[in-house]
Write a protein that binds this DNA or RNA. Structure first.
Length: 865
RNA sequence: GGGGGAAUGGCGGAACCGGCAGACGCAUCGGACUUAAAAUCCGAAGCCCGCGAGGGCGUGGGGGUUCGAGCCCCCCUUCCCCCA
């Protein structure tokens, strides 16, 4: 048995024991060992996509944080569910497979093995019996079944939707694969072209997705981003009759009060009326413009800083605000790409006097601008050559003249409704969700296309629809899905009728598996259902969900949507899946720049005292903070840190860097500080000069010392550490808990003779969630029964948190002039006289106008002269 | 372009409700131990002026509120993240 701190000699042993004894296994109701009195706590990490490059220290940050929370909660008596799994379907896995020439099944299995090994190496307390893999048939069988829940509710439908198409690559590309209208791979031009796609009607839930945010314990910034994304706006739909057309054009506006100022209409280039209304003279210009717009992304089109473009269709419309005879009512119809087909009705009424984009458009194409809202006093308007977009008073607007904007909006809607040319309407920026991909590595849709063109779901007892084994799974050259080439798979029969059928050949997007995984974790081996109602009722909702802010919008919105559909279907008992959300910060890394600003690889950099230089030339370099990237050579793998220092040092450093929520740089140079702390801790328990496994005074059965002298000082220090540790869990700034451990160990080293067995034991319990291996090792050396991981969290007692004497700050006019020591609980008069003595030199000959007393903290003398 | 954050010593960070800025650690410097080094232990240290006692200045910049501001309010700068 070693006298020195050698983590390599014991960490593996404890990890194996935890696993073998099922120490971290969560019990479901009804299972042997389930304690119905224990409250539940569900801590969930955003599960990773198991990439080929493995886990780096940035992923591990959140996992270490949730592990510490889970371990602590167990020690507080909670029944803790803390599972891990793999988000293994999706584009990156498929791309990686194509690159390496291996099948995604093989690479995924290989990668998940590596991830699991890496996570276990860190000593994370997951219940590995609950591990799931979204690309495994035992999982996606249920993804398919739950998709059918949405399908049966009428929430899934097929539509012609523009998708990115790259002619050169002969394939459909995802949004994230297209940058500025060109393919990310190869930089070839791409166009948006309509293709039949599966859509999910998430817009039907827009209002509830918005409203239910209020009850969640989420960062306000995430709620804001979700609200922004949903983008609710109230306004009106207005119908404009078109000259020579039977069908009117319907526009959406948030400012129905400005109808009298609408001087032209703008349709999106994709609007179905564009073709029928375009006049012969304008046809070629319009067609050219429509073709050009197809190559632009929505971001580019709506970029307000770009010059406005557009083309006149040659057609005219009637503004319903004016009489048929009124010349102001005859307005031209244009098309422009800043109007999107997918938002509102795909057409707008342009009010250049009171909308910035319309204003720029009108100026560029010399269209009339009318003022119909008078700005309030002091605000600039058309008279000053600027466009006023705020609230004011209606003018030149017939029946609503003189009304303030909010009232004018309301009256305008009433008038439109009375004339049958409009109505109130709420729209959302949120669009329905494009849910199909023409790719291989995803869940097949459990749907059959019959010869008569109808679509029927695959019966539940025939699920899963397994992904066929394919040698060549690359995207097809005609835009059809790779699955379409698996002819034996595609051709099938409807099991209900025996009629011939074709399988749907699209697959679900990467998001699908993560839309319900927190539910599967509750009951992961259930073979009859995705999860049992009993398990869901007990474990739901997730109490703490931790992951990067990168998933602020998409994943969380999609997951909430599915969950709400399940709620409506009676499958889950909560409206929301994740009660508390916490975003961990990014782990960045240092990189180095030479004087010209060029980045220099970390391996070529040398530290010279406080400065950094290029190894070969001695050229001075500047240190900057940036993300970890292979090219910079600054990616850090947990395995390497653990091999050198052990898992406990790694865990401590991850947390000691700073608050879990903050972004902060990884600095390899700082790691030994945490290692040294563990060595100091070790020496408090084990005498390096001796031969005993534990210092004799700390062994079980050793006599307890009375709480006096050094022992009392240590008792006080221990309670302070216990208190600070408890506080650190509120906002997960676990760095302050580790600082408290360090302070205690420094104190215990200084007053070694005063430390008692009970203090040593309580301190190990306190440290155990953070550095569990060393805690177990010392716990067993002390002869304590059971495991440190299963001991109780020590409690701080108020009587040990207060000192007998307190030091207060003494200020004169708010400037610190000294300090005074007073007994705890000293009254105001005693405090003031002590303070007067401390600041005597600064008070001499001055008039004290006021004395501010803050008990236990400070005294401030306000003086004149 | 829109949205979300952040800024404190040479570095990471601490400071609970507006009350002694810089806890804890890294790097640095000094000392002890050592033949020497490593490790360990003890100590110093925000910056400026002063031999010293001491004083001045300090939480990205400018203004404000307050007895008192890192923290609250207004304006500005820079950096990071997301939509992509």
């Amino acid at each position: 048995m070693s006298q020195l701190y050698e983590p390599q000699t014991f960490e593996k042993r404890w990890q194996e024991r935890w696993l073998a004894e099922g120490v971290f296994a969560a019990r479901n109701p009804g299972e042997p060992g389930f304690d119905p009195r224990a409250p539940k706590y569900y801590v969930l990490d955003m599960f990773p996509y198991p990439s080929g490059s493995g886990l780096h220290v940035g992923h591990a940050l959140g996992y270490v944080g949730t592990d510490i929370v889970s371990r602590r909660k167990r020690m507080e008596g909670f029944n803790v569910l803390h599972p891990m799994g793999w988000d293994a379907f999706g584009l990156p896995a498929e791309q990686y497979a194509i690159q390496t020439g291996k099948h995604p099944r093989a690479t995924t299995d290989e990668n998940t093995r590596n991830f699991r090994r890496q996570l276990q190496n860190i000593g994370l307390s997951y219940d590995w019996a609950r591990e799931i893999d979204t690309s495994h048939r035992d999982y996606y069988r249920w993804t398919q079944q739950l998709f059918l829940v949405l399908y049966e509710q009428g929430l899934a439908y097929q539509a012609e939707v523009p998708v990115w198409w790259c002619e050169e690559l002969k394939t459909v590309l995802a949004n994230e694969e297209v940058i500025n209208g060109r393919s990310e791979r190869g930089n070839f031009p791409c166009v948006r072209r309509p293709l039949k796609q599966w859509m999910l009607r998430i817009t039907a839930y827009a209002e509830r997705l918005l409203a239910d945010l209020d009850g969640l314990d989420w960062p306000e910034s995430i709620k804001i981003q979700q609200r922004e994304w949903i983008g609710r706006s109230e306004g009106a739909e207005v119908r404009f009759a078109l000259e020579g057309q039977a069908e009117p054009v319907t526009v959406f506006t948030t400012r129905p009060d400005t109808l009298w100022g609408a001087t032209f209409l703008v349709l999106s280039p994709e609007h179905p009326l564009v073709k029928p209304i375009t006049t012969g003279a304008q046809r070629s210009a319009v067609e050219a413009y429509v073709a050009a717009a197809a190559t632009k992304s929505e971001v580019d089109r709506t970029d307000a800083s770009k010059e406005k473009t557009g083309v006149f269709t040659g057609a005219f419309a009637r503004n319903p605000a004016f009489d048929a005879a009124d010349p102001r009512g005859r307005i031209p119809v244009w098309i422009a790409d800043y109007v999107l087909a997918t938002y509102g009705t795909g057409a707008i009424m342009s009010v250049p006097g009171h909308d910035q984009r319309d204003f720029e458009f009108a100026r560029k194409f010399d269209l009339p601008i009318r003022e119909v809202v008078r700005p309030p006093a002091g605000a600039q308007g058309l008279a000053d050559g600027v466009c006023f977009t705020g609230d004011g008073t209606a003018v030149d607007s017939g029946p609503i003249d003189g009304l303030a904007t909010p009232l004018a909006k309301q009256r305008a809607i009433e008038l439109l409704a009375a004339r049958g040319t409009g109505r109130a309407r709420v729209t959302y920026k949120l669009r329905d969700w494009l849910f199909s991909r023409q790719r291989y590595w995803g869940e097949p849709f459990p749907l059959l296309h019959l010869e008569d063109g109808s679509v029927v779901p695959v019966p539940l007892d025939s699920l899963p629809v397994e992904l066929p084994a394919m040698e060549d799974f690359k995207p097809s050259s005609d835009g059809s899905a790779p699955l379409a080439r698996a002819q034996d798979w595609v051709r099938t029969t409807d099991p209900r009728t025996g009629r011939p059928a074709r399988r749907d050949t699209d697959t679900m997007p990467g998001w699908a598996g993560s839309c319900w995984y927190w539910l599967r974790f509750m009951d992961p081996r259930n073979e009859r259902a995705p999860f049992s109602p009993e398990a869901e009722r007990y474990w739901g909702p997730v109490d703490l969900y931790v992951g990067g802010a990168a998933h602020a919008v998409m994943h969380l919105l999609y997951a909430r949507f599915w969950h709400k559909v399940f709620f409506d279907a009676g499958l889950v008992h909560t409206k929301e899946p994740f009660q508390r959300l916490f975003n961990q910060g990014m782990v960045t890394a240092f990189a180095y720049q030479d004087p010209t600003g060029r980045l220099v690889k970390n391996t070529e950099v040398e530290a010279r005292g406080e400065a950094f230089v290029r190894k070969e030339t001695g050229e001075p370099l500047a240190q900057i903070v940036t993300k970890m990237a292979k090219q910079l050579g600054n990616v850090v793998n947990p395995d390497d840190v653990i091999a050198e220092h052990g898992a406990d040092t790694f865990r401590l450093y991850e947390m000691f860097m700073g608050p879990l929520a903050d972004s902060k740089p990884w600095n390899t140079r700082d790691i030994p500080g945490c290692r040294r702390f563990l060595e100091r801790l070790w020496r408090v328990y084990v005498d390096p000069e001796g031969t005993a496994p534990i210092r004799p005074g700390l062994a079980r059965g050793a006599a307890e010392k009375p709480f006096e002298g050094d022992t009392a000082v240590l008792e006080r220090a221990l309670h302070k550490a216990i208190q600070r540790t408890a506080d650190s869990f509120r906002d997960l700034n676990l760095n302050t808990a580790i600082a408290a451990f360090m302070t205690f160990v420094n104190e215990a080293t200084r007053l070694a003779g005063g430390l008692t067995r009970s203090q040593a034991q309580r301190f190990l319990s306190l440290v155990s969630p953070f550095a569990p291996h060393v805690a177990e090792e010392l716990w067993s050396r002390m002869g304590e029964p059971g495991l440190a991981s299963q001991s109780a969290v020590p409690r701080a007692e108020p009587r040990w948190l207060e000192d007998d004497e307190i030091e207060v700050a003494v200020q004169v006019n708010g400037r610190l002039r000294g300090t005074a020591r007073v007994p705890r609980g000293a009254d105001g008069a005693a405090l003031e006289s002590a303070a007067r003595a401390a600041a005597a030199a600064h008070l001499e000959g001055k008039d004290v106008a006021k004395v501010v007393l803050v008990p236990g903290k400070l005294v401030n003398f306000v003086v004149r002269g």
